[in-house]
Design a protein around this nucleic acid. Structure first.
Lengths: 162, 162
DNA sequence: GGAGATACTGGTCATTTTGACTAAAATCTA
DNA sequence: TAGATTTTAGTCAAAATGACCAGTATCTCC
């Protein structure tokens, strides 16, 4: 784990949780709602923004809202010596939303979004053509059962000893 | 695809992209930066917030910032008749960040976060114990190669015919 | 146990932003 | 082309912002 990652503390978490309910509350409201001084919340927010603990804002956009209602996982095997080339290639494909390296026989697991199955085919072809990628296997996502969230985890942390 | 999803238009996308560079710009700055009237940006933002096109704010938090530096995919097979029970169970596990139903032999693919490998084991046990889940297989994520993003897709759309 | 660093409070200030409204112009669409 | 929807550009009073400050509380490490 990246232990140099900024660790949220209880106050950060409370702010974030409150912000979730209403992302545009003025800092003053937020402060009195949380029982903190305005300056505190203000500096916390500033710190949070620079902490690297948050993804960019656009990561909140649901692909479906961009007409990309079809998503899939593409697992790729690759010539390990060319890993960096492959990553660089993937990075340039806009439809590649995310990519992780799991333990096991799949070298890379790639999350993609497409307009329709045809488009999905095109995208997976594009992935297959990335340098170093030897084979891929695509598995369409039929249903988004639990959309990405951290709320529950955040709440759990707030319940623990601080 | 959920075709009742609100579809972002070019203006929405430009706003979102600009907001990415600086999430707290005042609306006025944003407006003049984009060459739009303030009222336009204001109403767009309001609409966006209610459109359901965005995940909650807390979805931006990186698990590592919550001390959950270890993530994994857990694939689960289940008694299909008890799908809803299983989902309800999963929903209650804070460490379950996301869950999708892919085509193929895996019934559910679950994204989890944990503090360390031991904790990961505990979480996967908890998943295994969900009603309806018959077997699971956990694969740890070794590296976050491309963290979730939509920026590139957003930019691509803006380059197309509007 | 204490010194120093760091964070929080509660206060002020001038400047900007906000939200809520207009009416008119521009754009879209059936 | 007529009607509906958006956008513009403007006003207003009320409120929020960012930048201060000194005093206090809390942490941390020797």
């Amino acid at each position: 784990m990246n232990s140099d990652t900024y660790q949220l503390d209880e106050t950060d978490r409370r702010i974030l949780l409150a912000l979730d309910a209403d992302p545009r509350v003025p800092i003053m409201m937020l402060a009195q709602q949380l029982g903190l001084a305005r300056g505190t919340v203000q500096s916390r927010l500033e710190r949070l923004a620079n902490s690297g603990a948050l993804r960019p804002n656009t990561a909140r956009i649901l692909p479906a809202a961009m007409g990309r209602g079809v998503s899939a996982f593409v697992s790729a095997e690759l010539d390990q010596a060319r890993l960096n080339e492959a990553i660089a290639g993937l990075r340039q494909i806009p439809e590649v939303l995310e990519c992780v390296a799991p333990a096991g026989d799949t070298d890379l697991l790639i999350r993609v979004a497409a307009t329709d199955p045809d488009d999905l085919y095109r995208v997976s072809e594009e992935i297959r053509l990335c340098p170093g990628i030897t084979r891929t296997s695509t598995s369409m996502i039929l249903r988004d059962v639990i959309p990405f969230r951290t709320t529950e985890l955040l709440k759990k942390l707030s319940g623990e000893k601080h």
